[in-house]
Nucleic acid binder design. Structure first.
Length: 326
DNA sequence: ATTACCGCCTGCTGGC
DNA sequence: TGCCAGCAGGCGGTAA
């Protein structure tokens, strides 16, 4: 499933290749992925046709293409979504849901192709999604409540200080309640620590709460907790501030490491959600490793049912707290 | 207001 | 061989 680093890799690819592109046609092949566009598929297509992409922005796992109309094409990859840039004559993918015909800006011939110059190159931006948890919709943009840039935008490496171009202080309403993520320069570590202490819940529930910090899914939650030697049911209220800061550092480290792998694995926008991209081949200490030895101490990794999902822990490094908060 | 849980989706896997 | 339960899980909606 696409996690934050994969979404950021997609964002960078889009920023590079489709900034300045103009939408020439739109085809919705399945209604479900545009369900969040309430006026319907025809209106969705009409609002995109003829528009030019001015920026590509991400907050958490929400991604959007800012348009010269002042609106934005929103995208969420959900569990199995992909955004791929293809030649117009490429065969349809099995789970192709939406197709946007694009005219690339002058001087760009798109990824992995260098054919004749002099005329604008056409490509298709395709939304492919097997399970359709994700989707596309067109949305207005509203000012960010804090007046700061919306998230990761422009070209460059947001994880590197000074890298990237600040995005405009505009967000889609659907994203206003989504917290910034740990790769966002405007992420407020101190504010997060303070809010965590007011919560009456367990640590992993808090990490997965997108209104506290965004972009953390099941995999990164488990990996960061393992690195921090913390159990998922540890009460947030009892966590010392230093441990909170350490945990956030581990979240950032594991994401930046994945970003480094993912960012060098693709020369197109294709991200293989089934894991053969090299991204998921990265070593996971505990996630999905039930019954295998903990890389740190050798105890066998345990799998617990948690929130209708799974949590993987090392029973020795991450003992169950005596006062657990499930 | 805060917290917890359900259901949406499809394809693959394993047990019988 | 076929059938079906279980599983993957982010997020919006809703109940308590």
């Amino acid at each position: 499933m696409p996690e934050l680093p994969e979404v950021e890799v997609v964002r960078r690819g889009l920023a590079r290749w489709v900034t300045g592109a103009r939408v020439v046609d739109v085809e919705v092949l399945h209604p479900r992925p545009v369900r969040r566009h309430e006026p319907g598929a025809a209106d969705f297509a009409a609002r995109l046709s003829g528009r030019t992409v001015t920026d590509v922005v991400r907050r958490g796992k929400f991604l959007w293409l800012a348009l010269d109309s002042g609106e934005a094409l929103m995208a969420h990859l959900g569990m199995s979504g992909q955004l791929v840039l293809q030649p117009r004559d490429a065969a349809d993918e099995r789970h192709l849901r939406v197709r946007l015909g694009l005219e690339l800006p002058d001087g760009s011939d798109g990824p992995s192709r260098s054919d004749r110059s002099g005329e604008r190159q056409e490509r298709e931006l395709r939304f492919v999604d097997q399970r359709m948890f994700g989707g596309l919709w067109v949305s207005p943009l509203v000012p960010t409540p804090d007046g700061l840039p919306a998230g990761a935008g422009g070209l460059g490496d947001v994880a590197a200080p000074g890298g990237g171009t600040p995005s405009e202080p505009l967000v889609p309403p659907a994203v206003v309640h989504i917290a910034r993520d740990v790769l966002d320069p405007a992420f407020d570590v101190v504010g997060f620590a303070a809010r965590l202490r007011t919560r009456r819940t367990g640590l992993k529930r808090a990490l997965l709460d997108q209104t506290l910090v965004s972009g953390i899914g099941n995999i990164y939650a488990d990996e960061a907790l393992w690195r921090s030697r913390l159990h998922y049911a540890r009460r947030t209220r009892t966590l010392p501030r230093s441990a909170t800061l350490g945990l956030l550092g581990h979240v950032r480290d594991v994401m930046v490491a994945a970003l480094g792998e993912g960012g060098t694995s693709f020369d197109s926008l294709y991200v293989d959600v089934n894991g053969s991209s090299g991204y998921f081949d990265r070593s996971l200490a505990v996630y999905g490793q039930e019954g295998r030895p903990c890389p740190r101490c050798g105890a066998l990794v345990r799998r617990d049912a948690f929130m209708n999902r799974s949590s993987f822990t090392c029973p020795r490094c991450q003992p169950t707290p005596r006062t657990a908060h499930w």
